[in-house]
Amino acid sequence: MVQLMDSEVFMAFTTYAAIVVLKMLLLAPMTSYYRITRGAFSNEEDVAGKSAEEKKKLLRTHPDVERVRRCHQNDLENVVPFVMIGLLYALTGPELSAALLHFRLFAASRIFHTIAYTCALPQPSRGLSFLLGLLVTLSMAYRVLSAALFL
């Protein structure tokens, strides 16, 4: 375990994994902020104590809220696999420069994806950032399979 903690690749992985996980976690309070400021709630208990008329107005969807919520869902579908594959990738002993390239590209793609999603940038900006992150994860998965199965 001590040897792993001394690995520059592993330390780089933990740094970039922490960055993308923190970014993903920040989307939850961002969603709450948008719900409150846009007056758009999805559950009855969120508007408890309000009059029936106020509940009708507040129990609705709003494009800004939905955009952030979908971005968060997309992060769950992409960041979690990156963390799992990235850990295995770091254990294969890749060159530091190659590992940094993978980790930095993934982190940059997810940060840009969040900006593109929340700011409603025109396509293909969001699609390209998603694709870049996916390709990085697939590249690391290939390395893991190559090392483990001698492909």
Rank of each mutant, 00 (worst) to 15 (best):
M1W: 12
V2Q: 08
V2I: 13
Q3L: 14
L4S: 12
L4A: 15
M5D: 08
M5L: 15
M5W: 12
D6A: 14
V9K: 03
F13G: 14
T14E: 09
Y16N: 11
A17T: 09
I19P: 00
K23E: 02
K23F: 02
K23W: 01
L26M: 14
P29G: 11
P29R: 10
T31A: 13
Y34S: 11
R38M: 14
G39E: 15
A40P: 02
F41K: 10
A48Y: 06
S51A: 04
S51W: 06
A52E: 15
K55W: 09
K55A: 15
E66T: 14
V68M: 08
H72C: 05
H72W: 07
N74V: 02
L76P: 04
E77F: 07
V80Q: 02
V80R: 02
V80D: 02
V83R: 00
M84F: 15
L87A: 13
L88S: 13
Y89Q: 07
A90K: 01
T92R: 03
T92E: 09
G93V: 04
G93D: 03
S97E: 14
A98M: 13
A99Y: 07
F103C: 08
F106A: 13
S109I: 06
H113N: 12
Y117E: 05
T118E: 03
L121E: 00
G127K: 00
S129P: 10
L131I: 03
L132V: 15
L134E: 01
L134F: 15
L134T: 09
L134M: 11
L138A: 13
A141N: 05
